[in-house]
Amino acid sequence: MKIGNLEVYGIIYKITNIVNDKVYIGQTTNEKGFKGRYNYASCDSLIGKVYYTYLPKEKYKEKSIYNKHLLYSIRKYGFDAFKVIEIFDIAFSKKELDIKEDIWIDYFDCINNGYNNMGGGSNGKLSKKSRLKLSKTWKEKYKNGYIPHNLGNKHTDDWKEKMSKVHSGENNAMFGISPQERMDENTFNKWRNNISKSVTRGKNPFASKVVCLETKKVYECVKDAEEENNITGISAVCRKIRYSCGGMHWAYYEEYLNMTKEDIEQIYIKEKESKISKNTKSLICTTTNKLFKSIKEARAFYNCDSHICDCCNNKRKYCGRLEDGTKLEWKYISDLTPEEYIKYDIENKLNELHNHKLVQAS
C-alpha cells in the first residue's frame, strides 16, 4: 500500500473511547488502508464504518468473526464517543507489523482494559476472559448433545497431498520464521528444554551407537561417549575427519561390526604416518644434495639463521655456509622441476626418510 509516495507493507490504526479511555489497536494491509478494511460506503463517519461493517456479522454469529465487545460499546456510547486514528503507525514487513501491533496492544493494556481479545500479530493469544468464555460455550454445547460435523470423517490421500502442497514451502505462514521468532522468550526456553530432553542422547531415534576401539565399550550415542570420557570430537573420528580423540580411536558401531583386525591396524598405521608428515614441508639443500623433513631440522644441522624459508621462496639466494665458506642454496621438494627431482634422486631419499621416521614412531 502507498501512503503518499511512501510504499509500506501495512498500517496500525487506533480506536479510542474518549469516555472511558479504552482502546482498540488493529492492523491492516488493505491497499485502501482503514477505509478498505472497514468499507461500508454509506457512512462518512470512521467509527460508523466500523459499526456497520460489524453489524451484519452479528446476525451470523456461528459463521462470522467480529469484535462483539467493540460493537456493543459503539452501540452504547454512540459514534461521537469514539476517536479514530487511521494511521497510528506503519510497517515495512509482516514481521514488523505483527510486532508493532503486539507492542501497542501491550502499551495501552488493550486486552485487560480495552477492546482487543488477543495479542497482536499472527501468533496473538486470547485473553484469559475470552478463553473462559469459549470454554464455557463449548462445554454447554457438548452437554446439549452437540456433535462436530466432521466427527469420524477421514481425509482421502488425494486431499492430504493437495493440502500438503498448499501449505508447504513459502505458502506456509511460518515459512522462514524460526521458533525463537514466533514465541516469547519464556515459551521458547520451555520448548527448547523439552526438545532437548526428548531427543538428546539415546532417546533420539536417529542416534548412532559408537564404540571405542581400545576398550570395546559401546555407547548409545556420541554425546554419551563424550560426556563419560570428558572429551569432544568423537563424531569427527567416526566420520574419518580425524584419527583419534582423547588418545582413543572410535567408530560407528554398525561399521565396527564389519571391521577386521587388519582394518583396525590400518587405522593406527595411517595415524602414525600422518604424525610424521603433519605440519612439515620437506626441503633440500641443493648445494650438498642433502634432504630434510623440515626447516627446523635443516637449521639445526647447518647452524643457519632463520632465512632458509626466504631462500625457498626465492626472496634471497643463499642461507648458511659450509666450513670451507661455500654458500648454501635451498629449495622446497614441492617446487622442484621433474629434471631436478631426478637429478637429486628425491624419490629414494624420501623413502629412506619416511621409513626411518616410521620406525621411530613405532
Rank of each mutant, 00 (worst) to 15 (best):
M1L: 12
K2W: 08
G4D: 09
I12P: 02
Y13W: 10
K22M: 10
Q27Y: 03
E31I: 13
K32M: 10
G33C: 05
R37E: 02
I47K: 00
K49T: 00
V50K: 01
V50G: 02
E58M: 07
K59L: 08
Y60P: 08
H69W: 05
S73K: 04
A81L: 03
D89W: 02
K95L: 03
I105M: 06
I105S: 02
Y107K: 11
Y107V: 01
C110E: 00
Y115L: 01
Y115I: 06
K128Y: 13
L134C: 05
W138E: 10
K143V: 11
H155R: 15
T156H: 06
K160G: 11
K162T: 13
K165P: 02
V166P: 00
N171E: 09
E181N: 04
R182S: 12
N186P: 00
N189F: 12
K190Q: 15
N193Q: 14
G202P: 04
A207Y: 06
K209Q: 13
L213R: 00
E214K: 10
V218E: 07
C221A: 12
V222N: 03
D224G: 01
A225H: 01
E227A: 08
I231R: 03
T232R: 13
S235Y: 14
A236W: 07
C238A: 05
K240D: 12
H249G: 04
N258Q: 10
K261N: 14
Y268Q: 08
I269S: 12
K272M: 14
K275G: 10
K278D: 14
S282A: 13
N289Y: 04
E297C: 04
E297A: 01
A300S: 12
F301M: 06
N303M: 13
C304Y: 12
D310I: 03
K315P: 05
R316A: 02
E323K: 13
K331M: 06
D335H: 08
D335I: 00
E339R: 11
E339G: 01
E340R: 01
I342T: 14
Y344T: 03
L350G: 06
E352A: 13
H354D: 13
N355Q: 13
L358I: 05
